[in-house]
Computed example of a mutant assay.
Amino acid sequence: MRKLHRPGNRVWPVAALLALGCAGIGAPGAVAEPVAVAACAPAQAATAMPAGLPILDWSENVGYDAQGNLWVSRLYRNEVQRYDSAGRLTATVPVEFPGAVRLGPDGLLYVVFGDSPTSVLRPGGVVRFDPDDPRPAVFASGFTMPNGAAFDANGNLYVASGPGVIRIRPDGGVDQDWTARAKFSGANGIVVRDNAIYLSMNGNPLGRIVRFPIDDPGNVTVLADLAVSPGIPDFADDLLIDDAGVLYVTTLTGQLVRVDPSTNTACAVLTGQPMTSVVAVPGRSDELLAGTEGGAILRIRLSH
């Protein structure tokens, strides 16, 4: 039996669920200055799809294709699963330790593979396939602990990995010069908006959310340091950014944290089971889906 590892540079929780700590802005590597935590209206969560076998069905990441099908990365099953709008399983695709699943500008699905400590010996990368004819082919490889992924407007793919962020050109080649300037220990979730990258990191400290310009990855702004209680950092996992530029971050302790870069505030809108990933439901600005360690997919309705 394979020994289960905590993927994506993660650690097990050190405290029970407590209130969100603080958020702040500062220089890279500096301790963020505490600021007032905004009062957030609570979100409501319900099970959209139950887990089959807990842990084995660990839902590491979630994403949609252009037809509205939901794709779920089942980390320990070594496969990505496709579900239709009714929640029926319609396809499975073999991918070793799958991480982020993202729709590319070409209509293909791109899935990170090797999201495991074994990638030190067996490097990971990215596969891609036609969602209607899912036969995965390697797009890029040679990465250690790849996890999150996001495209920019020019079709470049950014992969968050253990040593930092990797930029992959549309032809599958790695932009080595840019990648050498984007070293972030414990990079995990990643999103792109306009000309900026937002990143969750779990190096030193855990639970740090940062932003930097695509053209200048060394110019880092710390947006938030998430905590479960004062002095006890939380583990920040996946994140998304909405149309208003607000971030929603999933954490190891089961918090869904709202981070608003424009007002420098953060608050937990939901607490519950550990969440691994989050995606916006197409056409619904107030509805998200979240993957969980137990394997269930949660439907989350936000209050605005």
Rank of each mutant, 00 (worst) to 15 (best):
W58N: 08
I166Q: 07
R82L: 07
P117C: 08
L103H: 06
P54E: 15
A91I: 09
V112L: 11
V95F: 06
P146Q: 09
Y110H: 14
F113D: 08
L108A: 15
G114F: 09
L53F: 07
P117A: 11
P54V: 14
Y158C: 01
G125C: 03
D115C: 13
R102H: 01
S116H: 14
G124C: 06
L75D: 04
S119F: 09
P134F: 03
D130C: 12
N69K: 15
D65Y: 07
G68P: 04
Q67H: 13
G68W: 05
G107W: 12
P131G: 10
V126R: 02
V120T: 12
V120C: 00
W71M: 12
G104F: 07
R128E: 07
V80C: 09
Y158H: 06
V80L: 15
N61F: 05
Y64T: 01
G114L: 11
V112T: 08
G52Q: 12
G107Y: 13
S59Y: 02
A150F: 08
D57F: 01
P94T: 12
N69A: 15
V111E: 13
D152T: 04
V80W: 06
L103F: 05
L121Q: 14
L53W: 02
D65S: 09
T90S: 14
R169L: 15
V93N: 07
A86K: 14
V120G: 01
R122V: 15
D132L: 05
A160T: 07
Y158S: 03
S119G: 09
G99I: 09
A140Q: 00
V127A: 12
R167E: 06
S73A: 15
A66E: 10
F143C: 01
V120L: 12
